[in-house]
Design a protein around this nucleic acid. Structure first.
Lengths: 127, 127
DNA sequence: TGTGTATATATACACTGTGTATATAGTCCT
DNA sequence: AGGACTATATACACAGTGTATATATACACA
């Protein structure tokens, strides 16, 4: 009943949050705290790690000219920094799109070959 | 004509080489230098960075009991360390398989939403 | 009035994995 | 002897992430 089930299988996709943020902001301008929820659809759990990563990424993207922000007074709660995407940000998203298509293909090739060694949904194979 | 086309879009999938190596060794036992070529089918280019990463990963997987190795004398060239997968390694592959299925879904959700903002194969969208 | 909760943004520090560069060594060719 | 190919390995620096913490406003409730 230990929580130990072997070495970590992280499968973390580096920087993947970046294109997700641009895409969400393209749907509609928003501030960080709101984006944190909407990131859920791409598999981010919205924990404190994701929050830290998100705020860092938003700041960096603005430094790089991919986003612009403005402070907005809130009726309730502290002020929020609202972001929107620039033309540069759009071009960046286009490059991410190609990269992500390529990565999807890599995963598909892996899974296809993997299926030869697994019986349907079996969790194991034999050496 | 500069090589500069904006910030880096690395899209690196952390540790992805690990399950690829196990899968290739499940197909047939092999040594590192040979695996380096076969890794090409999963998008690894086989450069010196991949080589370093591969040898490190093979050694770690053996330490963790996922692989076992033995030295083999070669008719031509230096001896080679030949690896094969253990039962533990098979279980690990099973967990990677689930993780990678999940990541494929994340990428698909991204691409599907992305398509709303791009015209077919267009490389750009509008803010 | 003070305490706790929710909202909202931000950053310091340590850790992990990667990329670059380099080292070692045997075999074959010229 | 020198260079190319095969084969394995590791030191060092860097980049991205996770944890922990800091700051500040608004509101409910005792």
């Amino acid at each position: 009943m230990g929580k130990r089930e072997g070495p970590v299988v992280c499968g973390r996709m580096e920087r993947f949050m970046e294109p997700c943020l641009i895409l969400l902001l393209l749907e509609s301008p928003a501030h960080g705290y709101e984006l944190l929820e909407r990131l859920g659809q791409f598999g981010f759990e919205g924990g404190s790690a994701d929050a830290a990563s998100m705020y860092r990424t938003l700041r960096r993207l603005e430094e790089e000219g991919m986003l612009v922000s403005q402070w907005e007074e809130s009726e309730a709660g502290p002020p929020k920094r609202s972001y929107r995407v620039t033309q540069e940000g759009c071009r960046l998203l286009g490059r991410w799109r190609e990269t992500i298509k390529a990565n999807k293909s890599r995963l598909e090739r892996f899974l296809k070959l993997c299926d030869h060694f697994f019986e349907g949904d079996e969790a194991e194979c034999t050496p």
